[in-house]
Amino acid sequence: MSRRDRGGEKGKAMKHTISVIVENKPGVLHRVAGLFSRRGFNIESLTVGETEDPKISRMTIVADGDEQTLEQIIKQLYKQIDILKVFDLPKSESVERELALIKVHANEKTRGEITQIVEICQAKIVDVTEEALMIEISAETEKVENLHKMLEKFGIQELVRTGRIALHKGNQN
C-alpha cells in the first residue's frame, strides 16, 4: 500500500446499486436516508417494498460515491439495529429493472413513428388521447433512458420512473 493511500483524499465517484433488507419498523426509512445524506452520498433513487416475509422490507438504493465512502455507508447501515442485511449488487451479477410511464405529444403525423419506436424498445402504449400517447416501459435503466431520449423530440408532457429494483442472480442469501 502506498503511503498516500492511507487516507484523507477522496476517490473517484461511481454509481452503485445497494440492497438493504430491513425490519418493517417505523423510522427505518428516515434512518437509511439520513445516513446517506450525512456521509455525503447522493441518492439517485430509492425504492421500498415488502419481501416474501411481510415483516421484512427490501430497499433498493442507487447512489453515487467513491469506494471508501460506500464501504463506510454499508458498515454504518449494518450497525443500525433494524437493518438485517446490506449488500452492493454488481451489475454483472444481478437482474435490474425499472418501470417508467412517459406521456408524449402525438398527432396524426407523429403517432406512427412513435409507435414504431415503442415497438423497437419493447415498450407498450397504455393510453391514447388526441394529443398524446402514454407509454409504459419496464427495462434496465439504460433502456428506459434510451427510450426517453428517442421520444424527446416529440415533446414529453410528463414522465415518472419507479427507480431501480434489483435481485442477485445466484443464491446469494
Binding site: M1, G8, Q72, Q76, K79
Partner: peptide, 25 residues
C-alpha cells in the same frame, strides 16, 4: 492525515467494524 505515522504499518482493533478504515486504511 496523509503524514500521520508515515513509517508505520497499521493494525486496528475495534469492536465497531465501521471504525476500521473510516479515516485511515
Amino acid at each position: 492525515l496523509p503524514t500521520f505515522a508515515p513509517k508505520a504499518k497499521h493494525i486496528h482493533i475495534d469492536v465497531d467494524p465501521a471504525e476500521i478504515g473510516k479515516n485511515v486504511r
